[in-house]
Design a protein around this nucleic acid. Structure first.
Length: 588
RNA sequence: GCGCCCGUAGCUCAGCAGGAUAGAGCAACAGCCUUCUAAGCUGUGGGUCACUGGUUCGAAUCCAGUCGGGCGCGCCA
């Protein structure tokens, strides 16, 4: 089914065309003046300007050409040339019946499906996830779901930080503590132990220690570089050790991402691109893209057109022969294009990496590595504390993701106790509710900000469950479920959706919007639009709920219509929340 | 120095491919539970959209400049 705005825009586009003007002027949008109409078309103003005509006269002639007319309860001209549009209740009801009968709730799948890789998460081996990893995971997960829902073939890749200097640091640091391990003995011929010599706790201690040491001690840094080079050259002991680091880390990452409802199709990492690098570099040299500069090999990236700016070259090979992360990213693009047949690769990464991605993308396009694939850096802003500085705990440290999830769930438990809700629920169900409410609140708080803006991360505030919060949305959905359950118990079934009256018109109109809202969010890769829509739905439902006592309604047809409306509302809200990565409990 | 992003209500944020009277939540104040879950609903007050200029019939939205804030800028990732 064609989306409503598209359908209306087509009608007005045709009307403009018949009046001798471009159909693009026919764009219909939600009205900014609900008192004057449900929708509006402003194209006559722009068309009049282009044609040097009187805008009201243009609007008049367009109005005369509008067809079909019977779906409109009112079409009127206002102000300098606005066309205000109000649909008949019959037509609205017809749209809703069609949406309710459709498995996709009236959302058409894209006619041009692409193979899309979404690169998000970005966790590192040996570092436990902290709140700095939150946004990429939450935003990336939502964008993945949205694009998948719109009909694309989407693969989510965690793209682990499992390679590079940090690995060398870990190796040297561990050697410092346990030099007798067989991994460090060049004479050792294997096999190496299957059991990891370190736990995740060990790694989390080792990493900051190693990092600090390398920063202050040039000799330690040199050793780390050396170890990194040897690892990359394939020294068996180091490789075996590294595999343990990765294995131990992934187990914990799966748990942490899992607790957020974030799942990946691919658990690839920087290391997976390494085998690709030597031949790729050879190809680039052969094709004349590599250039010697200050001992390193670089790819120059001069502007190719006026809208490109000067940017520094991409370092392809360091002066010590090693690869930089830009090289790894290039090789990863090559892999995704050649082996995953990616048409498009999206990177959900902090805005501070903008320059890096600009370099990588430009290099990938110039050299042909990207092929026909489109590359997009979907930036997101920094999470600051209430003081406007990057977020820190009271103790001044970074808050671990695990602790944050726990904190917010503790709060959910407290809220339920205060409201005297769920005391009689089985323990397991109550735990599930707490998880869904806690994680949902956290995600909604994050996603309702536009992804590109920096925002203040205030746990005290996110934990509140009143107002425009995830908990409010879940609460609304749960009330819908409750009504439908009680209706079924009493033998009341949803019936045919009738033309809305004043009591439910607001809700009914909102329910015609899902396809346009999803498309809007998908086009902009911006989940916050869906957050807004979900909130509007929940609010419109709550008002309707307050005004109309559904189960007490004695008119069977009306009650059936209302129940069908609740059902459709629940389906749409659930779908929208799913696209945001939120789960709805049966009751709460 | 160069570049990127951002200044909207007391606070946190939407809105920005130009459109009519700039929205929401929180906070403040006033109401609504013998009725489908009050984590709810209703109402009131609160804004020179940082500033200046420009483009336009029309600018929070586009352009230029100024001020203020954040971030980034070749061998870490």
């Amino acid at each position: 089914m064609q989306s409503l705005l598209r359908y209306l825009s087509e009608i007005f586009g045709n009307a403009f065309q018949q009046a001798g003007m471009d159909s693009s002027y026919g764009d219909v949008v939600i009205s900014a003046r609900a008192d004057l109409g449900q929708f509006q078309c402003n194209g006559a103003l722009a068309a009049a300007k282009a044609a040097r005509q009187n805008p009201r006269a243009v609007a008049e002639s367009v109005l005369a050409n509008v067809s079909p007319r019977e779906i409109f309860a009112d079409l009127s001209l206002a102000g300098p040339g606005f066309i205000n549009i109000t649909l008949t209740d019959q037509f609205v009801a017809k749209r809703l019946r069609a949406a309710a009968a459709d498995a996709r709730l009236g959302c058409e799948a894209t006619p041009h499906p692409e193979a899309i890789v979404v690169d998000y998460g970005g966790a590192n081996v040996a570092k436990s996830m902290h709140i700095g990893h939150l946004r990429s995971a939450i935003i990336g997960e939502s964008i993945k779901r949205i694009l998948r829902f719109t009909g694309h073939n989407v693969l989510g890749d965690v793209h682990l930080g499992d390679w590079g200097l940090q690995m060398g640091m870990l190796i040297t640091e561990l050697r410092r503590h346990q030099p007798d391990l067989p991994y460090f003995n060049p004479e050792f011929s294997g096999p190496y132990p299957e059991e990891s010599p370190v736990t995740i706790e060990d790694l989390e201690q080792l990493y900051p220690a190693a990092s600090a040491r390398a920063k202050s001690d040039t000799e330690a840094m040199e050793q780390s570089r050396q170890a990194t080079a040897e690892l990359q050259a394939g020294r068996p002991g180091y490789l075996a050790l590294w595999l343990h680091f990765v294995g131990v880390s992934i187990a914990v990452l799966r748990r942490d991402y899992g607790s957020l409802g974030v799942t990946f199709d691919l658990w690839l990492g920087e290391s997976d691109a390494q085998p690709q690098i030597p031949t790729m570099v050879q190809q680039l040299r052969a094709a004349g893209f590599a250039e010697l500069s200050e001992g390193a090999e670089v790819i120059q990236l001069p502007p190719a057109s006026e809208d490109e700016r000067e940017i520094p070259p991409l370092i392809l090979v360091k002066s010590d022969g090693g690869a930089m992360y830009g090289t790894t990213d290039l090789a990863t693009i090559q892999l995704r294009v050649e082996e995953l047949y990616a048409d498009r690769i999206l990177y959900v990464v902090d805005a501070r990496q903008s320059l890096h991605f600009e370099q990588v993308f430009r290099a990938a396009r110039r050299t042909g590595i990207a092929g026909h694939a489109k590359l997009e850096h979907l930036t997101f802003g920094t999470m600051n504390g209430t003081d406007g500085r990057p977020f820190k705990t009271r103790a001044g440290g970074t808050m671990k993701l695990h602790d944050l999830v726990e904190l917010i769930q503790t709060e959910a438990i407290q809220k339920m106790e205060e409201a005297k809700i769920g005391a009689e629920y089985p323990d397991q169900e109550r735990e599930e509710i707490v998880r869904m409410v806690g994680v949902g609140s956290l995600k909604y708080a994050d996603l309702s900000n536009h992804r590109t803006s920096d925002y203040v991360f205030d746990p005290e505030k996110f934990v509140r469950f009143e107002g425009k919060t995830g908990a409010y949305l879940l609460y609304a959905a749960v009330r819908m479920k409750s009504i439908l359950r009680k209706a079924a118990d009493q033998g009341f079934a949803p019936g045919e959706i009738l033309p809305p009256t004043d009591a439910e018109r607001e809700l009914a109109l909102l329910l015609t919007r899902l396809p346009d809202e999803v498309e809007y969010a998908a086009d902009r890769r911006a989940p916050n639009y869906l957050c807004e829509y979900a909130y509007n739905l929940a609010q419109a439902f709550s008002r309707f709920y307050d005004r109309c006592h559904i189960l007490r309604e004695e008119n069977v047809a009306l009650r059936g219509s209302w129940l069908a409306l609740v059902k459709l509302c629940l389906d749409q809200l659930t779908t929208t929340l799913e696209l945001l990565g939120m789960e709805v409990p049966e009751r709460m």
